[in-house]
């Protein structure tokens, strides 16, 4: 097993520290960043702006740290679902090409701790946080990587539960010295972990999407256990306050479940609780998961919700389903791929 640390996934500051530790000038850190993130080298030998001696030393003490996907499933609609080895398991990344953009939906954890009723990833339990290297490797080692225009943190895991690694990955993803994605091209989605959300807003400028799924707090906690400790009203109060000084785009993720959260009563309450926040709503069709007690809303209910919300001044769209023939809902593929679930004593 290779125990050499990976350099891909290090911030500029960390690369400068490493360079200094090797007796190099600080600008060598910037040269490393340029090679790793802009020139997209796969080996130290390709870093020809470094001396041969330094390249040899880097080879002895570090790896670049790229890991190819171990499996890919392609949908008839062009969506591709990649399985990446990470933390001894697998994580999923979905490449979603569209007319004007190509989006990568990446994972931030193996499994998840949040236990949302509608989520397949949660059925794995929590396995591990992804390192910065493992998060960004999904971008860098994606065969379609150079085509990517957008990145969304909406795959497996709760990004704000892996806060430091998420923030460092965002820094590298959006920095001029890094992978160079504009902050308007990156969205982090979360169920709303409040102290972490505050830190996220103070340290990153990328877009934010709140997984809301039910405007009534008593009903929301039947779907999202986190509601018991991080109340939706507190999360929205934070967003309302943050928006006074923060211009980033905010959106709501709302999976529509038949008879559970798609009625006129829910629309009315959504309008009420979102009052005063400039925010758009994405209505999402539910990809059924095995054993779920939930069913997705029908087209008529989705359209009625969308139209009602738009009439009330909340920009709302219905997200087009992609990759349904390849288990594109996050967690489905990797849960199937887990050879043996970890049996815990309880």
């Amino acid at each position: 097993m290779d125990t050499r640390p990976a350099l891909f996934g290090k911030t500029l500051e960390e690369l400068r520290t490493i360079a200094a530790g090797l007796g190099q000038k600080p600008y060598v850190g910037a040269q490393l960043a340029k090679g790793l993130y802009q020139r997209r080298v796969a080996s130290f030998d390709e870093m020809t702006d470094l001396s041969l001696a330094l390249r040899r030393r880097l080879e002895d003490e570090f790896t670049v740290g790229l890991t190819a996907p171990s499996k890919v499933d392609a949908s008839v609609d062009g969506t591709k679902k990649y399985l990446f080895p990470a933390a001894g398991k697998f994580v999923e990344a979905a490449f979603i090409p569209d007319a004007e953009r190509s989006t990568l939906c990446l994972s931030s954890q193996v499994g998840c701790k949040m236990g949302c009723l509608f989520c397949m990833t949660g059925k794995q339990g929590f396995q591990a946080h992804l390192s910065v290297n493992e998060i960004l490797n999904q971008v860098r080692s994606l065969p379609e990587g150079p085509q990517l225009t957008n990145v969304v943190y909406m795959g497996m895991g709760e990004p704000l539960d892996n806060l430091e690694n998420t923030l460092n990955s965002l820094e590298i993803l959006t920095a001029d010295w890094g992978l160079g994605f504009g902050v308007q091209r990156v969205t982090v989605s979360s169920i709303g972990l409040l102290p972490a959300l505050e830190t996220f807003f103070s340290r990153s400028r990328v877009r934010f999407a709140l997984s809301l799924h039910n405007p009534f707090e008593d009903e929301r906690r039947q779907l999202l256990p986190v509601q018991n400790v991080h109340a939706l009203s507190d999360v929205l109060a934070f967003l309302r306050t943050a928006q006074k000084t923060d211009a980033r785009r905010l959106s709501i993720e709302y999976i529509a479940f038949a008879g559970v959260n798609d009625t006129p009563r829910h629309v009315k309450e959504l309008v009420r609780i979102l009052h005063g926040i400039k925010i758009r709503v994405n209505l999402i069709r539910f990809h059924p998961i095995p054993g779920t007690p939930l069913a997705g809303s029908n087209e008529a209910a989705l359209v009625a919700m969308r139209d009602s919300l738009n009439e009330k001044g909340i920009p709302t769209t219905i997200r087009r389903s992609r990759g349904q023939d390849i288990y594109a809902a996050c967690g489905l593929l990797s849960t199937k791929a887990l050879l043996k679930p970890v049996v815990q004593d309880f």
């Binding site: 236990g115 949660g122 059925k123 339990g125 929590f126 054993g291 007690p293 970890v342 815990q344």
Partner: peptide, 14 residues
């Protein structure tokens, strides 16, 4: 309790 237990217990009860 733990996420793994909660999710498994909930699935079984359902």
């Amino acid at each position: 309790g733990s996420a793994a237990m909660v999710v498994e217990a909930r699935d079984i009860l359902i």
